[in-house]
Amino acid sequence: MNSAYEKYFRQDRLPHIWCPGCGNGIVLSAFARAMEELNIDQDKTVVVSGIGCSSRATTYVDFNTLHTTHGRALAFATGVKLANPELNVFVFMGDGDSSAIGGNHLIHASRRNIDITAIIIDNNIYGMTGGQYSPLTPTGKKATTAPYGMVERNFDLCELVKGAGATFVARGTVYHAKQLTDLIVAGAKNKGFSVIEAVSQCPISYGRRNKMKNALEMINWQKEHAVNVKAAQKMNPEQLKDKFLIGELYRAEAPEYTAEYDKLIERVQKGGK
């Protein structure tokens, strides 16, 4: 941990601005450990983010970093990757960032199967602006803009990107931090669009309003409600009620967009149509 911490964080930008008990720091550590395991070339790696608590990640990690506009991280990242496919591209997004304002880009990055690894920190809420509901706030839960409980249905983000064409889909949690590292490594190795939903906690803007007093309680909730996808195969629907799956949920083979475009260039330059 120490070597990853020293190598992949911008020491002069720490401490971070995240609240006490926030899960973002744990996700970012898992990311740094994954980078260490991949022995990644920092000069050839771009980390992109949108807007919100998650997006501050790009300030702290020592790569080519691009902190963009709300919801648009994947669209910027698509430009980076297509313009120079040699670069490794990672994207940090939040749940509102990726599935509400940026939902369209998430769908189309999945459809293109562009070789980008997206880490979506899901804390069920807009934290930076003080706790408004997102498309991932569970129905019935409270937010400043859902004072009587969330009326809308919430997304299953992993099912969404799977349906849209992503070729690696996984979910982890802050509690299962070692597994989260492994999932990021596996996502990065997939030549295509990879999505890792990192279930995190926001004690300040979400927990307090929803009968979870502190981070510990929230992390315990993750521990009690997460079921590994392999273990789930041996469980019946009654046992799986109120649980969510973690681990590698889906993997598929499909042509990768930037490689296909390079083939197109080759074909056109040879005089093909």
Binding site: T68, G79, A83
Partner: peptide, 15 residues
């Protein structure tokens, strides 16, 4: 919106 974002991303690679 995405097309404006993509050209900015691409420009940062020097194109």
């Amino acid at each position: 919106i995405a097309s404006m974002a993509a050209v900015i991303g691409a420009s940062l690679t020097g194109k």
